[in-house]
Structures are given as structure tokens and as C-alpha cells.
Write a protein that binds this DNA or RNA. Structure first.
Lengths: 154, 154
DNA sequence: TGACAATAGTTGTTATAACAGCTATTATTC
DNA sequence: GAATAATAGCTGTTATAACAACTATTGTCA
């Protein structure tokens, strides 16, 4: 039995290759969800990576994080953390401070303005997640994340 | 029970929100797979969207496709098909031709050079897919794609 | 038929991503 | 302790993405 593909792809020759189909479903679904959340972030003039960085820094709290650590924690790898932080700093959403012990590190912290910006998004985002996945049971979500985890670790 | 998150995210406060966890797993897995395949495409100096376009045009064959149709079939929405096709045309991988019946349409076709480029990638890519997902059973892949489909349609 | 809407594509502009090479600082090793 | 490697981050450049305004062509309908 040929496996179904995302509609829009409209592949004529049904893929014989179930692995490629699985791969495509993961990518297409991710892309779709990403596009939807991008709309939410835009309310506060943030891109998805920018929102991601702010959340990371909120999580880090008063200790802050250096650029490399921020990069490691991101969902999508960003090849240029420096200038991304530049922009956020320029908007006053974060601040930076060079460490004195090891002067190679520049720690980044979220500011009050950054926290306020995030706060305005918190409720809509939780609401979006709940609503967007409301039609899956908890067990379905666990099964799916379990399988995705297996894919990732592979 | 708190659901596990992708390692690198290192969230301190475990998410209470299983929906958000599911969402993150989808995105992180997709991102990871995308990064791996990007390496393959780079062998032929192609980005993932460029490879995607060439495959779409190969699928379309001698009939070709107009820009909008190409855009519809892409995995990741591209906001600027025109210039992406410009670049591929500049490299001789595709050619374009304005339709005579309805002069609004510009049809794109893959060239011999484009087909050759794709051909060099076909085997490595099939091999990559098989190897990358070899540790999942066919039934696991079907379950996963079924759930992803449910997410997407939601 | 003529105004207006719809569609396909192009172009200009700005922001961001990708890549490579660079400086500053600290760790390692002989 | 000097040479070297390793790490963090910065900078320059090019390519691409995102957004909006614009042209050309065709469809709709009073």
C-alpha cells in the first residue's frame, strides 16, 4: 500500500519509499505549524527565532547566558547569534555584559521590556497550542512525541 | 508525568503543557533532519528549496509548471519564487517560457543539466532516507505519519 | 463595452541567513 | 614561560527571505 503524502505536494508517482514519506510528513507539518505561530509572534514584531531567544533568556533568569549557550538551546540553529542579539539589544529587549572572570564571554540577559513583550504573548501562545492540538488525545500526543524522539536519536 | 523535551532545549521548568511539548518535538526533529539533508544538497550547490523546485519540475515533465504552481507544491513556502527561478535559470538548470494562450503565465521546465544534477543526488538521497529511518519499523512509520497527518489537518 | 476585480509575475527595499575569515582571551603543552 | 591550540564572539560579504508596491494580462458583470 502506498503511503499518502501531504496534499499540496501532488506527487504523481506515489512514493515507493515509506521512509521518504515519513520524512516529508515531518517537514511539512513542522513548516505548517511554524507558519501559524509566526503570525502570533508578529503581533509583537518578533520572528520565531527572536521569540525563541527571549524565552531562553527568560528561562535563564538573572544568571544570563552567553551567546553560544543561547545558540545551543535554540530550536532552529542560528548561524549568527551575535547580530541577532545586536538587534534585540537595539530594541531594548535584552542587555549584554562582558564577563570579568573570563573576558571571552558576553552574557545576555532579558530586560523588563523583554519580559513585558513575552508576557503579552504567553496567553495567546498557550491557547494556540491547546487549540491547535486539541483534537489529539494525550495518548496520541505521547505516541507521536515518542516516535519523533526515536527518529531524532536515530 | 511530565513529558520529555528535546535535550538541547534544556528547559528548567518541565512543561506542564503536553501540547507545546508535542509541537516542539515536531519542530526540533524537522529542523534536525533538514540540516542533515542540506549537507547532501550542498554537494551539488543546491539549497533545500532549490532541490525541491528541481524535483517538482522533474515531476512535471514536459508540460512544465508556472511559478505559482511550483510555489504551491513546495515543502517550505517560498515568498519569492520569481528570483529563485531566476537563479536556477541563470545556472542553466531550468528554462522558462511565457505561455502564448494566457500571457500571464510563465512556464518553467527542468533542463538536461537540471536532470543531471538531480540524478547525481538520487541515490545518495534514497540511501540517506533508508538509513536515517532504518531503526523504525514500517508500522511505526505509518503510525507516526498518521498522527502527523492528524495534526496537520487539525 | 467599459469599469473593476482577479491573477501571474516582477521589482525595490529591508531584514535575516549562511559562510568564511578575523580578533581577543584563555587553556594547554612542551 | 613561550608557542600553540581552543574558545567566544565579531565583522565583511554574499545569498536568500520577507514584505509591499507595481505592471501586464485576463476574467467578470452591470
Amino acid at each position: 500500500m502506498a503511503i499518502e503524502l501531504p496534499e499540496n505536494l501532488k506527487q504523481k508517482t506515489p512514493l515507493s519509499n515509506i521512509e521518504e514519506a515519513a520524512y516529508l510528513w515531518i517537514l511539512v507539518t513542522a513548516e505548517h505549524l511554524k507558519a501559524e505561530t509566526a503570525e502570533l509572534f508578529k503581533q509583537q514584531d518578533l520572528t520565531a527565532p527572536q521569540y525563541n531567544v527571549l524565552r531562553i533568556l527568560r528561562g535563564a533568569g538573572a544568571e544570563g547566558l552567553c551567546g553560544r549557550e543561547v545558540g545551543d538551546r535554540m530550536i532552529t540553529r542560528d548561524s549568527d547569534i551575535t547580530r541577532m542579539l545586536d538587534r534585540l539589544e537595539g530594541r531594548g529587549l535584552i542587555r549584554r555584559e562582558r564577563q570579568t572572570e573570563d573576558r571571552r564571554f558576553v552574557l545576555a540577559f532579558i530586560t523588563k521590556a523583554g519580559l513585558d513583550t513575552l508576557a503579552k504573548l504567553d496567553r495567546p501562545i498557550v491557547a494556540w497550542h491547546r487549540k491547535r492540538l486539541a483534537h489529539l488525545s494525550e495518548s496520541e500526543m505521547r505516541t507521536m512525541t515518542g516516535l519523533l524522539k526515536k527518529v531524532l536519536k536515530g
